[in-house]
């Protein structure tokens, strides 16, 4: 208490000054039209700015949720793309509404573990598994890129063999010349793949777009993979083609697992032929 009194005696002048000026300020903004309006608009401006800052800061915390929602919505949208449908109508002039049957479904998933690409493992782990409908043999894609093929699943997780894996062969085509081959990784840079089994009678030029062919039931037709950067006629009647990937697979976080709804039927048919 004595300290407070001392403080007041020492700084009383300044305290009184601020007190009186505070009263004056209050009177000014309360009872003078012009000052009142300036005060209101200024304080509104500052409060508005502060609220704005607050909101933009707070919105960071919900970013992950929003991203998840967008991811799921993207999967839905991809489901409605042309290449995920099986066209059941025979004639183009009749186009009944039910002639489109969903043939592929997209399961959004996050990459939760990666090994070094280009080494021995070349696999990634996703946070979706059997309970979400993930099965071995399903393809994994991102926007403008193929990631790999699911090789093993548990209830909650799945293991994906990436395109850099030795055993991974993706059926890819060059739509411009209607030729297809298989995309394999031959130990180049991680953004460059090789396209095998394109016959030399076709005219391959650099810059041609490479897409999934749709001939294997793992991927729908027409997912962009990359572009031809190098093409040379090899000795075995096949081209020696290098493909630059459109998307850097090593950095992806969100992927889509492709659930082929008609895959079993397709496989059954081909297996039956082999058995005969």
């Amino acid at each position: 208490m004595g300290g407070l009194l001392q403080l007041f005696i020492r700084y009383g002048g300044i305290l009184l000054f601020f007190l009186l000026e505070g009263i004056c300020f209050y009177l000014i903004v309360q009872f003078n039209q012009k000052q009142h309006q300036i005060y209101l608009s200024t304080s509104n401006y500052f409060i508005g700015t502060a609220l704005d800052r607050y909101n933009s800061t707070i919105s960071y915390f919900s970013l992950y949720k929003q991203m998840e929602a967008l991811h799921a919505e993207n999967a839905l949208l991809r489901d409605s793309l042309d290449n995920t449908y099986y066209m059941s109508s025979m004639r183009m002039d009749t186009f009944p509404g039910d002639s489109l049957i969903q043939a592929y479904r997209h399961i959004p998933a996050n990459v939760i573990s990666k090994s070094m690409f280009g080494g021995n493992s070349n696999s990634i782990t996703l946070d979706r598994g059997g309970m979400h409908g993930v099965k071995p043999g399903q393809g994994v894609v991102v926007k403008d890129g193929v990631v790999g093929i699911v090789v093993d699943t548990t209830r909650h997780f799945s293991r994906v063999m990436t395109i850099y894996h030795r055993a991974c062969r993706i059926s890819a085509s060059i739509p411009k010349i209607n030729q297809h081959g298989s995309l394999v990784y031959k130990g180049d840079s991680l953004t460059v793949m090789s396209l095998d089994a394109i016959p030399t009678h076709a005219d391959v030029e650099t810059g041609y777009i490479v897409e999934t062919s749709g001939f294997s039931h793992k991927f729908p037709k027409g997912i962009k993979i990359g572009a031809v950067t190098f093409a040379q006629k090899g000795s075995d009647n096949n081209y020696n083609i290098r493909v630059k990937l459109a998307t850097d697979i090593t950095t992806v976080q969100q992927v889509y697992i492709i659930d082929r709804l008609m895959g079993d039927e397709w496989e059954q048919l081909e297996r039956r032929e082999n058995e005969q």
């Binding site: 000054f17 009263i23 009177l27």
Partner: peptide, 14 residues
């Protein structure tokens, strides 16, 4: 003009 001259006067005094 409530407060205007009072504010200036207090400032002068200060």
């Amino acid at each position: 003009s409530p407060g205007l001259h009072a504010g200036a006067s207090v400032f002068s005094a200060f």
